[in-house]
């Protein structure tokens, strides 16, 4: 065994890599966001931070994921040989579509506060899947589909790379409306921002995989409709479980939603990573090429 290893060619150190590593950037952004949210939460629990409404603080919290995305993704993108183009455009368009279309439809047509909040577990899943869930996923999908897809898609990971700004744009709109209208305390704002960002990134990544696979893989004719439905359904599952996670008798489990979204993110992003990895392996095997990571 030892001899075999000695006979094996050494791995090339400092392998030349022309693209930004998507997973690494994404994990960094999410971990920093988690650390900030946890710091705010712990600071409030230890009475270091006053748990009151702060307009400025809430806006900064809402913009934090965008800042992290810029630092860890956009700036990194500029340092690689073949940067992905149009990330900020996707982000901007997502904000516009989310605010102009999705938010308007939600408030004027779906009015979820009147019927969806009080619905039972399964009714919530169904109701959310066919209204808010599908609307959100379609908006994020449409922004990518009609801008950077297929021209800027070269690898499956591009689906994830472009789904992140689309998700962040959508989450920014949702967060800003909530933070500025409902005026939550700083700890609640931190958790809410994190939950929304994680949820949309996670489900967006799944949709990104479907978009990439549509271009690259061999998919059936109902691939995209299925992807949209699945993304919507999965986000609905999260929404349905969130109620169980945060409600405790007549009280509230402040971090129930936070823990749920962490578990949800690990599970779904893990699944997406697995799907992409497996698909890449299959493609590489078929083409006899070495696979990129």
């Amino acid at each position: 065994m030892l001899e075999y290893q000695l006979l094996s060619p050494e791995e090339e150190s400092g392998e030349l890599y022309p693209y930004r590593r998507v997973w690494r950037s994404l994990i960094l952004e999410m971990v920093v966001l988690l650390l900030v949210a946890a710091a705010v939460f712990i600071g409030v629990q230890l009475d270091i931070i006053e748990d009151a409404y702060s307009r400025t603080g809430n806006i900064l919290l809402a913009l934090l994921p965008i800042g992290l995305f810029y630092v860890f993704s956009v700036r990194s993108e500029q340092r690689v040989a073949e940067p992905r183009q149009g990330l900020l455009v996707v982000l901007l368009l997502s904000v516009i579509v989310a605010n102009g279309v999705a938010w308007t439809v939600i408030q004027e047509v779906f009015t979820p506060d009147r019927w969806l909040v009080e619905a039972g577990f399964f009714s919530r899943i169904i109701g959310y899947t066919f209204t808010l869930g599908i609307l959100a996923e379609f908006c994020k999908y449409a922004v990518i589909r009609y801008t950077v897809w297929p021209d800027r898609f070269r690898y499956r990971l591009d689906g994830v790379a472009y789904s992140v700004p689309a998700a962040l744009g959508y989450a920014l709109v949702v967060n800003l409306h909530f933070l500025l209208q409902d005026e939550p305390t700083i700890s609640a704002a931190a958790i809410r921002v994190l939950v929304n960002v994680y949820l949309h990134i996670t489900v967006g990544a799944l949709m990104g995989y479907f978009l990439a696979e549509l271009l690259i893989g061999r998919v059936p004719f109902f691939w995209l409709p299925f992807g949209l439905f699945l993304a919507s359904f999965i986000s609905s599952l999260f929404i349905a479980f969130r109620r169980i996670a945060v409600v405790s008798g007549l009280g509230s489990r402040d971090i129930g939603g936070l823990l749920l979204v962490l578990g949800f993110t690990v599970f779904v992003l893990g699944a997406v990573a697995f799907l992409i990895d497996s698909a890449d392996e299959r493609t590489a095997a078929r083409a006899g090429l070495r696979r990129l990571r």
């Binding site: 047509v109 779906f110 009015t111 019927w115 969806l116 169904i126 109701g127 899947t129 066919f130 209204t131 599908i134 609307l135 379609f138 999908y141 589909r145 549509l214 998919v219 004719f221 109902f222 691939w223 995209l224 409709p225 992807g227 949209l228 439905f229 919507s232």
Partner: peptide, 22 residues
């Protein structure tokens, strides 16, 4: 192309169904 058109149709159908459910 078929997939894209079908996606739009599906989304519209789902949203319509959503309104009905609501």
């Amino acid at each position: 192309q078929v997939n894209s058109l079908l996606a739009i149709a599906t989304v519209l159908a789902m949203l319509g169904l959503g309104v009905v459910i609501r």
